[in-house]
Lab assay of single mutants.
Amino acid sequence: ISTPTHWSKLDPKTMKVNDLRKELESRALSSKGLKSQLIARLTKQLKVEE
C-alpha cells in the first residue's frame, strides 16, 4: 500500500483511472466503479482532508 499523495497536489478530474485507483486504495477507499464515480469519491475525500 502506497502513501496517499497530499490533497493539494491532486486534481482528480485530470487524473488517469489507474492513478485514481491508486490514490483511493492508499486511502482505504473502494477503487471499483466508473471513472466518474472514482473522481467523485476521491474529490469528496480530498475535501475532508483539506
Score class of each variant (00 low, 15 high):
I1R: 04
I1K: 06
I1T: 08
I1C: 04
I1Y: 07
S2V: 14
S2W: 10
S2H: 12
S2Q: 11
S2L: 06
T3H: 05
T3Q: 07
T3F: 09
T3W: 06
T3M: 13
T3C: 12
T3N: 12
T3E: 13
T3R: 10
T3G: 10
T3P: 08
T3S: 09
P4A: 15
P4G: 15
P4F: 10
P4T: 12
P4C: 15
P4M: 14
P4Q: 09
P4S: 15
P4K: 15
P4Y: 13
T5S: 14
T5C: 04
T5V: 10
T5D: 02
T5M: 11
H6V: 13
H6A: 13
H6D: 13
H6C: 11
H6F: 12
H6P: 14
H6Y: 12
H6G: 09
H6K: 13
W7I: 06
W7C: 09
W7R: 07
W7M: 09
W7Y: 11
W7H: 14
W7S: 10
W7A: 10
S8N: 10
S8I: 04
S8Y: 07
S8F: 05
S8M: 06
S8L: 04
S8V: 05
S8C: 13
S8W: 05
S8D: 09
K9H: 10
K9I: 06
K9A: 12
K9P: 03
K9T: 09
K9D: 10
K9S: 08
K9E: 11
K9R: 13
K9Q: 14
L10W: 00
L10V: 06
L10G: 03
L10E: 02
L10K: 03
L10M: 09
L10A: 04
L10Q: 03
L10D: 02
D11L: 11
D11Y: 12
D11M: 13
D11N: 14
D11K: 15
D11V: 12
D11Q: 14
D11C: 15
D11A: 14
P12H: 01
P12W: 04
P12V: 08
P12R: 01
P12G: 02
P12Y: 02
P12Q: 02
K13V: 12
K13L: 06
K13S: 08
K13E: 07
K13I: 11
K13Q: 09
K13T: 09
K13W: 04
K13N: 15
K13H: 08
T14M: 13
T14L: 09
T14F: 07
T14Q: 12
T14A: 12
T14D: 11
T14R: 15
T14K: 15
T14N: 14
T14S: 13
M15V: 02
M15R: 02
M15G: 00
M15C: 03
M15L: 07
M15T: 02
M15I: 02
M15Q: 02
M15S: 02
M15K: 02
M15H: 00
M15E: 00
M15W: 00
K16T: 08
K16M: 06
K16N: 14
K16I: 09
K16H: 14
K16Q: 04
K16W: 04
K16A: 06
K16E: 11
V17G: 08
V17F: 11
V17C: 15
V17A: 10
V17Y: 11
V17E: 15
V17H: 08
V17M: 14
N18M: 14
N18K: 15
N18A: 14
N18P: 14
N18V: 14
N18W: 12
N18F: 11
N18H: 14
N18G: 13
N18Y: 12
N18I: 15
N18E: 14
N18D: 12
D19M: 14
D19Y: 12
D19A: 13
D19V: 07
D19T: 12
D19K: 05
D19F: 12
D19Q: 14
D19I: 12
D19W: 09
D19N: 14
L20K: 01
L20T: 02
L20Y: 02
L20M: 09
L20A: 03
L20W: 01
L20C: 04
L20I: 15
L20V: 05
R21K: 09
R21H: 07
R21P: 02
R21M: 14
R21Y: 06
R21Q: 06
R21E: 03
R21G: 03
R21V: 09
R21C: 12
R21S: 07
R21N: 04
K22Y: 11
K22N: 10
K22D: 06
K22S: 13
K22R: 12
K22P: 03
K22L: 09
K22T: 08
K22V: 05
K22E: 06
E23S: 03
E23M: 00
E23K: 00
E23D: 00
E23G: 00
E23R: 00
E23V: 00
E23L: 00
E23A: 04
L24T: 02
L24G: 00
L24E: 02
L24V: 02
L24M: 02
L24Q: 01
L24K: 01
L24P: 01
L24N: 00
L24R: 01
L24Y: 00
E25H: 02
E25V: 08
E25T: 07
E25I: 05
E25R: 08
E25L: 07
E25K: 13
E25A: 04
E25F: 03
E25S: 03
E25Y: 01
E25P: 00
E25C: 02
S26M: 14
S26R: 15
S26L: 15
S26P: 03
S26W: 14
S26C: 15
S26G: 15
S26I: 13
S26F: 13
R27F: 00
R27D: 02
R27L: 01
R27A: 02
R27K: 01
R27T: 00
R27S: 01
R27P: 01
A28M: 14
A28W: 11
A28C: 14
A28E: 14
A28Y: 15
A28Q: 15
A28H: 09
A28D: 15
A28R: 15
L29H: 05
L29V: 04
L29E: 04
L29W: 02
L29S: 04
L29K: 06
L29I: 14
L29P: 01
L29R: 06
S30R: 13
S30H: 08
S30V: 12
S30E: 11
S30W: 05
S30T: 12
S30I: 07
S30M: 11
S30Y: 08
S31P: 11
S31V: 12
S31Y: 09
S31F: 10
S31H: 13
S31A: 13
S31K: 09
S31L: 10
S31D: 08
S31W: 10
S31N: 10
S31Q: 15
S31R: 11
K32I: 07
K32A: 08
K32Q: 10
K32G: 09
K32F: 06
K32C: 07
K32N: 08
K32T: 11
K32H: 11
K32Y: 08
G33V: 00
G33W: 00
G33P: 00
G33I: 00
G33E: 01
G33M: 00
G33H: 00
G33R: 00
G33A: 01
G33Y: 00
G33Q: 01
L34V: 07
L34S: 12
L34Q: 13
L34W: 08
L34G: 08
L34H: 12
L34C: 10
L34I: 11
K35Q: 05
K35M: 06
K35D: 06
K35E: 10
K35P: 05
S36D: 10
S36W: 09
S36I: 10
S36Q: 09
S36V: 10
S36C: 09
S36G: 06
Q37Y: 05
Q37F: 06
Q37A: 13
Q37M: 12
Q37D: 10
Q37K: 09
Q37T: 10
Q37V: 13
Q37H: 04
Q37W: 04
L38Q: 04
L38H: 03
L38M: 11
L38A: 03
L38V: 04
L38F: 01
L38C: 04
I39S: 07
I39P: 04
I39F: 03
I39D: 05
I39G: 05
I39Y: 05
I39L: 07
I39M: 10
A40M: 14
A40S: 12
A40L: 10
A40N: 11
A40C: 11
A40Y: 15
A40P: 09
A40W: 11
A40R: 13
A40H: 15
R41D: 04
R41N: 06
R41Y: 04
R41E: 06
R41C: 03
R41F: 01
R41G: 03
R41L: 05
R41I: 04
R41Q: 04
R41V: 04
R41H: 04
L42R: 02
L42K: 02
L42D: 03
L42C: 01
L42V: 02
L42W: 00
L42Y: 01
L42Q: 03
L42P: 04
L42T: 03
T43W: 07
T43V: 11
T43D: 10
T43Y: 05
T43H: 10
T43K: 15
K44C: 04
K44S: 07
K44P: 02
K44N: 10
K44Y: 06
K44M: 04
K44I: 05
K44V: 05
K44A: 08
K44D: 08
K44E: 08
K44R: 12
Q45T: 10
Q45Y: 07
Q45E: 09
Q45W: 06
Q45L: 04
Q45A: 12
Q45I: 07
Q45K: 13
Q45F: 06
Q45V: 06
Q45H: 05
L46R: 03
L46A: 03
L46I: 08
L46M: 12
L46H: 01
L46F: 04
L46S: 02
L46D: 02
L46W: 01
L46K: 04
L46Y: 03
L46T: 04
K47S: 10
K47E: 06
K47T: 09
K47C: 05
K47P: 01
K47F: 03
K47G: 09
K47D: 07
K47H: 06
K47W: 05
V48A: 09
V48S: 11
V48P: 01
V48N: 14
V48I: 14
V48W: 07
V48R: 12
V48F: 13
V48E: 12
V48K: 13
V48T: 10
V48C: 09
E49P: 01
E49R: 00
E49G: 00
E49S: 01
E49D: 04
E49C: 03
E49W: 00
E49N: 00
E49V: 00
E49L: 00
E49I: 00
E50V: 06
E50M: 02
E50Q: 11
E50L: 01
E50W: 07
E50I: 14
